[in-house]
Amino acid sequence: MKEPLWKTLTPGSVILEPGSSAKFKTGSWRSMRPRWIEENCIQCLFCWIYCPDMSVIVEDGKRKDFNYDYCKGCGICALECPGKKGNKAIVMEKEGG
C-alpha cells in the first residue's frame, strides 16, 4: 500500500536539497525577451552582476547567452548594457513576437 503523503514529509519541513529552486522554472513569466548581440558585447559582465535571476550564463569569465529557463524578462540587463559605440549588446523584444 502506498504511504500517505503526510508520512513521507521531512520532519520540521526542513529542505535538504540546496538550490532546489532550480527545479522551478520561471522563464514562462516573461512577456519581454532579451536578445544578446554578441558583436556589440564588450564583456563588461554588468548584465551578469545586475541580473536578479542569475540568468546570464558566464563560463570561464566569458559571457554566453541567456538562460531562458529562468529569465523573467525584466530588462535590467538591456538598460544597463553599455554596448559598443552606442549599439546595445542586449535588446528587449516581445516574447513570442
Binding site: L5, W6, L9, P11, G12, S13, V14, I15, L16, P18
Partner: peptide
C-alpha cells in the same frame, strides 16, 4: 550540506505537515 529551515508552505502541504 546546507539545509533550509522555515519554508513557506501553502495549501499544498501545510495540512499534511500538521497531520505529521
Amino acid at each position: 550540506n546546507p539545509k533550509s529551515y522555515g519554508p513557506l508552505i501553502l495549501t499544498d502541504l501545510y495540512h499534511e505537515y500538521k497531520r505529521a
